[in-house]
């Protein structure tokens, strides 16, 4: 059960209320990171409602937009408050798949949690993943997939990353992802909920 007014407001999609509360809290000196945390909790609640079928797609997307609009205000303040990012994370939807809704939500949450996210977009090839990991020296790469037919593609990309001698941790996420898929494609972590992604990142960067 949510108790924080801001968490409740974003979970209930009360756009104006969210904007008002953010302004009010910033004015009274609450740290931007704490505000982002409240927003994240509310977003996780909305995500949970979507998973149980209580919320519909429009509501999940709206929640993401409210979060994005809020981050426009909060992000510049965040980088000011904790001068450095917690670290680099490479993210992308694997080759053959063009779904980005889930990935975008995870990217938003990771950014909100203080990570520098290099978002490669959708339909990302093995080569692009490898190049980005090398360039950013990211300790974590997140791969998103929705289509079951793209499992092979994900396996191939991870094999490619390993063949290139990179030890970056690989987190895979998507609606049908489970332990079996994770083991099959050779990933280190798997997540089904967007919020799990943040927990895993925090573990790795701790």
């Amino acid at each position: 059960m949510l108790t924080d007014a801001l968490s409740i407001a974003i979970a209930e999609l009360e756009e104006q209320q969210v904007a008002d509360l953010i302004k009010e809290r910033l004015d009274s000196g609450v740290s931007p990171l704490e505000i982002v945390n409240s927003l994240q909790q509310g977003m996780a609640e909305a995500g949970g409602k979507f998973e149980t079928g209580e919320y519909f797609l429009g509501e999940l997307i709206m929640c993401g937009e409210i979060m994005q609009d809020s981050m426009v205000i909060l992000e510049p303040l965040l980088s000011g408050s904790n001068a450095e990012y917690k670290g680099n994370i490479v993210m992308g939807t694997v080759k053959g798949d063009i779904h980005d809704l889930g990935k975008n939500i995870v990217v938003m949450l990771l950014k909100g949690s203080g990570y520098n996210v290099i978002d490669l977009g959708v339909d990302v090839s093995k080569e692009k993943f490898i190049e980005a990991i090398k360039e950013s020296k990211a300790p974590l790469v997140g791969m998103s997939v929705l289509l079951t037919g793209c499992q092979e593609s994900m396996k191939e990309i991870i094999e490619g990353i390993r063949a290139a001698g990179l030890t970056t941790k690989v987190l895979i996420g998507g609606n049908y992802i489970d332990q079996v898929v994770k083991d099959y494609v050779g990933a280190d972590y798997s997540a089904q909920a967007a919020t799990d992604g943040v927990k895993i990142a925090d573990e790795i960067f701790a």
Binding site: L13, E15, E54, Y55, F56, G58, E59, I61, M62, E65
Partner: peptide, 12 residues
């Protein structure tokens, strides 16, 4: 009705 918020609320 942005993102059908009111429609979905009415449904629920």
């Amino acid at each position: 009705d942005r993102f059908g918020k009111k429609f979905l609320k009415a449904f629920r």
